[in-house]
Nucleic acid binder design. Structure first.
Length: 563
RNA sequence: UGGGGAUUCGUCUAGUGGUAGGACAGCAGACUCUGGAUCUGUAUGCCGAGGUUCGAAUCCUCGAUCCCCAGCCA
């Protein structure tokens, strides 16, 4: 999969911005990345971040990081820091860090301006009354009895709301637009609500806080943002966005909407992810099964892979569900090029080489990364008793199985050809405990001087040199493609989403790893050292498996057998 | 007859009046000291019906389906 030569997927926003520059509507490009600091960011956000970042970068513009902290009840500084950290990790750079709360004073002045123009009023109705008079999707709303309030009275009331003279819910400031507007957003939307809450930055200074609609566009304008890029659900807010700036006579940012990213077998709803964390279905916001950025990072996914993936998905207005396998392809692509190869036996069984000297140890030369010659070579100890994967031996081989079975010869990677001579079983259970074989000393290094071939090469770890480790295997968290749909999350949880293997045997070099170190365990997949590991007792997470043609053949055979 | 958005292989996405292309997934094969990687080949698609045109995914008309909106959330 090449990247830069691929035709660019969806770029209607890039095109629109180019037109704006050409027409002179804007002389420069400035976008903003507007997270609400109320939770951890997930891969769905990355699409938006990338579009904001890429659009600015494409035209020599800049990106502001603006925290949308207009609701003190939900927002916390902790999340601000987490979001900044995640953004940096992704490699997205911002020119300026701002907060919606930076503009509370100016925004209030602008509100006063609208009140003076007779375009906003204080409504004394209760929330229920406001809701009841809004009308429905098909029926118009009705005017508030306070709609005709004189300007002076509105000004006085607004000032006293600000000072904190009224209880929460008792009054709001509303824009005076049209209660019969076919677009519900335009039916006298609430601009300020009373909230006697402590704000993470402004403390107790304010008793009224702006709604999204009243804050966001005005902040965009104040910051000279040229393009306010957001997801489709804001399309219907655009008339209001434009109405405010028009009435105010301020700098007019252009809002452009794109469709958000949906990934199959993943959970993007913040509320539902929170539930997964709280009920203990996952172990935290950084659980490697989650598509939160912290989860992906711990899982071992590189930021470059995430960015390449969202770039490939592109920017369109189509509702879409991107298949997880596309994301995995980008993860593999990235990891394949940069991961050091190591040998690790996940489900070990002993392989005894009967004709190999008891105390002999050889150092075998191995390639670190066939995709990158600069990664060099390493040595791996080899001896009489090895561990191999249980799956690499079958007493009675299925069709097309080329690994170890009695009488068959295979190559031990970087070592010798060995021929299987038999298997030792536990007399009580009948379970295989040891595979036996003989080796051909002439095949040292892995090639036969007589030119004979083997159909399979298997990996191994010397038993007396092996490092024991825990390895965590992950599968998709959900069995359903769209677990967000409907209720009953418990029903679509994949019971096999985590499998912990405790007796894994690794080559000696793997004893000393730091959390975040990534490797390809040959023939098994890509793995990343987890922070739970101790020196000498590593813990690895499986990021993603290798493409497994054999698994496919076996699965196909099973299906045919049944049919 | 509430308003607004969308519809191209299984999935995502190019194409904007001139041979429907790419990626992932699938299938078949080559190669291989990873059944990995790489390479080759291959099947599958314009929501529907009319119309305009020498020619329509693209323009027009009518229809279908899906998504969003009735927070003092963002």
């Amino acid at each position: 999969m090449t990247t830069s030569t691929e035709p660019q997927a969806g770029q209607f926003i890039l095109d629109a911005v180019a037109e704006d520059l050409k027409s002179g509507r804007f002389k420069y490009v400035r976008t903003r990345l507007p997270p609400e600091p109320n939770g951890y960011m997930h891969i769905g956000h990355v699409k938006a971040w990338w579009i904001d970042y890429n659009t600015a970068k494409a035209y020599g513009g800049e990106l502001y990081l603006r925290f949308d902290d207009t609701n003190p009840a939900k927002e916390e500084t902790e999340y601000v820091e987490a979001i900044k950290e995640d953004t940096k990790w992704l490699g997205i750079q911002w020119a300026k860090e701002t907060y919606a709360s930076d503009y509370f004073d100016r925004l209030y002045e602008w509100a006063v301006r609208l009140v003076k123009k007779g375009l906003a009023y204080v409504d004394d109705q209760s929330p229920d009354e406001v809701s009841a008079t809004r009308g429905t999707l098909t029926e118009p709303g009705s005017n508030s009895p306070f709609r005709g309030r004189p300007v002076e009275e509105n000004l006085d009331l607004l000032e006293r709301m600000k000072k904190g003279e009224f209880p929460e819910g008792s009054r709001v400031l509303r824009a005076k637009i049209d209660m019969a507007h076919p677009n519900i957003v335009m039916r006298d939307p609430v601009m300020y609500r009373i909230l006697h809450a402590l704000h993470h930055r402004t403390g107790d200074k304010w008793n009224i806080y702006p709604m999204y609609d009243w804050s966001h566009g005005q902040n965009d304008s104040m910051e000279g943002i040229t393009h306010s890029l957001c997801s489709q659900e804001y399309i219907i807010h655009r008339p209001l966005y434009e109405w405010f700036l028009e009435q105010l006579g301020e700098f007019k940012t252009r809002q452009i909407e794109f469709s958000r990213l949906n990934l199959t077998h993943a959970m993007m709803s913040k509320r539902k992810v929170r539930k997964l964390v709280e009920t203990g279905i996952v172990k935290g916001w950084d659980d490697p099964r989650l598509t939160t950025l912290r989860g992906l990072r711990r899982r071992g996914v590189n930021p470059e892979a995430i960015l390449e993936f969202v770039r490939a998905v592109g920017e369109t207005k189509n509702d879409s569900w991107v298949d997880m396998s596309l994301f995995e392809a980008y993860i593999r692509d990235d990891l394949n090029l940069r991961s050091l190869r190591r040998m690790a036996v996940l489900r070990p069984i002993k392989l005894v080489i009967d004709n190999y000297p008891e105390d002999r140890v050889e150092e075998m030369e191995a390639v670190n990364n066939p995709e990158d010659s600069s990664a060099g070579m390493r040595k791996i100890p080899f001896s009489k008793v090895l561990y191999i994967e249980q799956d690499d031996f079958r007493e009675t081989p299925p069709p097309k199985y080329f690994r170890l079975f009695p009488g068959n010869e295979v190559r031990l990677r970087y070592a010798y050809f060995v021929k299987c001579t038999g298997v030792v079983k536990d007399p009580a259970t009948g379970v295989a405990t040891e595979v036996h074989c003989t080796y051909d000393p002439a095949t040292c290094g892995g090639d036969a001087p007589d030119g004979r071939k083997v159909k399979s090469t298997i990996h191994w770890v010397s038993a007396r040199h092996a490092v024991k480790a825990e390895v965590r295997l992950y599968e998709q968290l959900f069995t359903a493609e769209q677990p967000d749909e409907g209720e009953g999350i418990d029903q679509v949880i994949n019971p096999n989403s985590l499998e912990v293997l405790s007796g894994c045997m690794l080559e000696p070099l793997l004893a000393d790893v730091r959390p975040g170190d990534k490797f390809q365990f040959e023939r098994n997949g890509y793995f990343c050292a987890d922070p739970d590991g101790q020196p000498g007792k590593p813990v690895f997470n499986r990021t993603v498996t290798l493409r497994d043609t054999w698994a496919k053949i076996e699965k196909g055979a099973k299906k045919d057998g049944k049919a």
